[in-house]
Amino acid sequence: MVLIAVQVNGTDHQDEVEPRLLLVQYLRETLGLTGTNIGCDTSSCGACTVLLNGESVKSCTLLAAQADGAEIQTIEGLAPAEGPLHPVQEAFRENHALQCGYCTPGMVMAAVSLLEEEDQLTERTVREGLEGNLCRCTGYHNIVRAVLACAAERGMVPGSVS
């Protein structure tokens, strides 16, 4: 067993974990944070995307042990439980960017990361930036619109008024 210390959504945790335990399993099974979903076993779908030290990672590609010492943010940590939605969540709602909701937590976290990482976004760069996250319901059309709406809010879309 390996002892790890992580901060998840602002709360410190110390746990003994099996060396082979994936980060996503640690989040879901040990911490009970089931908002992060598992959609594949080849790191292809992105449903399990979380932020690790501020950057989006697929939490099925990391061992929990590798996350030792890291700050992690999951979908549950994006907006206060009783408070308003995060602007990206709100844009997803406003633009009907989710249907079954299974890819949504990962997609939202990937979008949050993309909006932080880039200075400017266009439809093309949003599409490429979300390439690692699969959705079967929306055809991505409204997801792209939602992210572009957030980008426009922040003045990141060339030609848009912030």
Partner: peptide
């Protein structure tokens, strides 16, 4: 009309079978 389903799903409160304990 915007979906009434969305807030729970967006907050990661989905009740998918694997989330059931």
């Amino acid at each position: 009309v915007r979906r009434v389903e969305d807030p729970a799903l967006l907050r990661g409160e989905g009740t998918y079978v694997d989330n059931l304990k």
